[in-house]
Write a protein that binds this DNA or RNA. Structure first.
Lengths: 152, 152
DNA sequence: TACCGGTAGTTCGTGCTAAGAACTATGTAT
DNA sequence: ATACATAGTTCTTAGCACGAACTACCGGTA
């Protein structure tokens, strides 16, 4: 734990790196006229449609918070609520065409920016970092808030 | 870039790990009756007092956003605005005693929780991860939003 | 001294975020 | 048929973030 010079512990490293990622994410969202939360919503929905419940669990939001987020995304034409054929109470939130296009652009821009954060690392270091973060992500069952590769 | 199985690229790893850290940070803040932003404010001020300008630069906020954040922190008795002796326009934002106590508790709890995220890693892996994140943090000049070691 | 452009912060108005509690409508088990 | 659970929405309250306009003060210069 005792560190000298520029060295950081894992904890401070994780927190500060997150801060960087958040900033980059916010900048990217802003570039596309989105809020961070809207950007996250789009990225999640790029994978597949979600019901409100699953969506809340994935994003870590209460259902009451989600209604408004989805409302605003609907108002902007990014997302649609479709009735669930198997359950008349439930709803599937789906990207519209416009929403998908924007999501893909935003996703790509964000990837580029986050990638630049790691620009100073050598290729083997990048691989090592990816492996270690992958461990953390899977051990803690991080939800799929950001796809690894874009699949259409 | 082509990945198989559970492997993640650096980008997705960074984004999802950040999501985990954010969640943990939020949970920790909530435990202490703070918002995430208030928690961040306290953590920054643990290091030293800041003027509004520097504080905004460090937190990545516009000055107009900061006024309210500091106002609410003042209202909760966590923080004080002190006149800058050298510049009568300027203000120094300082932790109150209560604010410092809460900051330290919150900081410790957050450290514990973030540390648990990395609990699955071996000691050498933790060191490697710390080193790689440290590189990213210093290459991108991440502001001191989270101290490495607590200094009083 | 008087003026002037720049800087430090605040105020105000708008829209977004997040939560809990209360509610509607539908599903499910007994 | 009753009763409980689940999926979402509504409403209220508090906080967050921004830009534009504003006040007060600083520094330099005529």
């Amino acid at each position: 734990m005792g560190k000298r010079g520029e060295d950081l512990g894992v904890v401070a490293g994780l927190v500060r790196a997150s801060f960087l990622v958040n900033a980059v994410y916010a900048e990217s969202a802003r570039e596309y006229g989105l809020t961070v939360q809207q950007g996250q919503l789009l990225c999640v929905l790029m994978g597949r449609p979600y019901g409100m419940g699953d969506l809340g669990a994935t994003l870590g939001l209460e259902k009451s918070s989600l209604t408004g987020l989805v409302d605003r995304a609907v108002r902007r034409g990014l997302v649609r609520r479709e009735p669930d054929p198997d359950d008349r109470r439930a709803v599937q939130v789906v990207l519209t065409g416009e929403g998908r296009d924007l999501a893909e652009d935003f996703y790509a821009a964000t990837c580029r920016r986050v990638d630049e954060l790691a620009a100073g690392l050598s290729t083997p270091d990048r691989d090592r970092l990816a492996g270690l973060l992958g461990l953390i992500v899977s051990e803690n069952e991080a939800p799929t808030v950001f796809l690894d590769t874009v699949q259409r």
